[in-house]
């Protein structure tokens, strides 16, 4: 139970910058999700909070105390490692028990706690196996159980569900969120999975190339992206980004013409989400490039000039390719970005 503050954290590996000038305030009891492409510095950030990696510059404060010089062991954080890091010589039972033993928790409580943690990750029947005799997903759940078996100041979870099937992942997600609310432990959670990020997070941090792109609630990140990176990263399929020209309140690109605010002009990028595009209209004039029915929704790709625009269409929408089609953009949900990719906002 502690807040975490990262103040101007820099991590360099030789000349390579792993994390650049990162400042972040994580509130007590908050569930914070780090989201970003592979290699953007998520694990590195986690490891610095845990004390396994020393920041090259900057301060880390946990629970009001500067912890830069405090050993990992004394920071009282529990971590789920991306590579599981189970103890190969111990049974799963002993693995989960290890933190209880090492933290001096009375032996009489061990069994009940271990069984509860194992129950939560649906691993009850594997307790006497060694990690080598488990599947990848089972190992991952064992690692998760080992982290949540005690109540630390902070949970750090590095892609704890990445190896599970969709169904198990969904049920684990609910379990984790429920447990976090119950135990009220500040949690930092790394994932590649947007659904996971959206459903679990109080706030999401989007990172790219070691730098924070945007911090916000899932709603803010989704409906108010700060730049083209965030816009193109969130949503599935992600937001359409179309380069064109804005002049006198009108944005134009090959095959595309939409009204835009007057303060938007010059070379700009238009962003529009697939779900804000509707069949029938004249903002986009093009041809059907592909149709992908998925069951509950049909994805339609429209070729307008050189741009391929993704459209979320009704689930029974069907069409042949190369048929001429008109698409309307929802004028209330258009985003404009300047040449450097930053969002253009009106004088608010």
């Amino acid at each position: 139970m502690a807040s975490i503050h990262l103040q101007n954290i820099v991590k360099r590996y030789g000349g390579f910058v792993g994390v650049q000038n990162m400042s972040l305030d994580i509130a007590d009891e908050e569930f914070l999700v780090l989201l970003g492409p592979s290699g953007c510095g998520k694990t590195t950030t986690m490891r610095m909070i845990a004390g396994l990696e020393e920041p090259t510059e900057g301060q880390i404060v946990i629970g009001g105390e500067v912890v830069n010089d405090i050993d990992a062991r004394d920071r009282d954080v529990a971590m789920v490692f991306q590579g599981y890091a189970l103890y190969p010589n111990m049974s799963i039972y002993e693995n989960i028990r290890f933190p209880l033993r090492m933290r001096g928790i009375p032996a009489s409580e061990h069994d009940a706690r271990i069984r509860k943690a194992a129950e939560m990750v649906e691993l009850g029947s594997f307790l006497d196996r060694k990690p080598g005799a488990l599947s990848g997903g089972q190992r991952q759940r064992a690692a998760l159980a080992r982290a949540v078996v005690r109540q630390p100041q902070v949970f750090l979870m590095d892609e704890p569900l990445s190896n599970l099937d969709a169904k198990l992942r969904q049920s684990m997600r609910v379990q984790i969120k429920h447990m976090q609310r119950q135990l009220k432990v500040t949690t930092v959670y790394v994932t590649h999975d947007q659904i996971e990020a959206m459903t679990l997070a109080d706030r999401i941090v989007i990172m790219n190339k070691g730098a924070i792109q945007q911090v916000g609630t899932p709603d803010e990140i989704y409906s108010d992206p700060a730049n083209t990176f965030v816009a193109g990263f969130i949503g599935s399929p992600p937001m359409n980004l179309i380069q064109g020209t804005a002049r006198d309140g009108r944005f134009t690109a090959p095959g595309i013409s939409v009204p835009c605010p007057r303060f938007v002009h010059g070379q700009v990028t238009l962003g529009v989400r697939p779900e804000d595009c509707h069949v029938g209209g004249d903002n986009l004039q093009g041809q059907v490039y592909g149709v992908e029915p998925t069951g509950d929704v049909t994805y339609l790709t429209v070729l307008g000039g050189t741009n391929k625009i993704e459209v979320k269409a009704a689930r029974d929408y069907r069409s042949d390719i190369d048929v001429a089609i008109g698409i309307a953009f929802d004028p209330a949900h258009l985003y404009f970005f300047d040449e450097s990719g930053q969002r253009i906002r009106g004088a608010a």
Partner: peptide, 12 residues
């Protein structure tokens, strides 16, 4: 990583 995990689990 196994050592690191043990470290975080509180082992000397």
């Amino acid at each position: 990583e196994i050592e690191e995990a043990a470290r975080l689990d509180g082992a000397s």
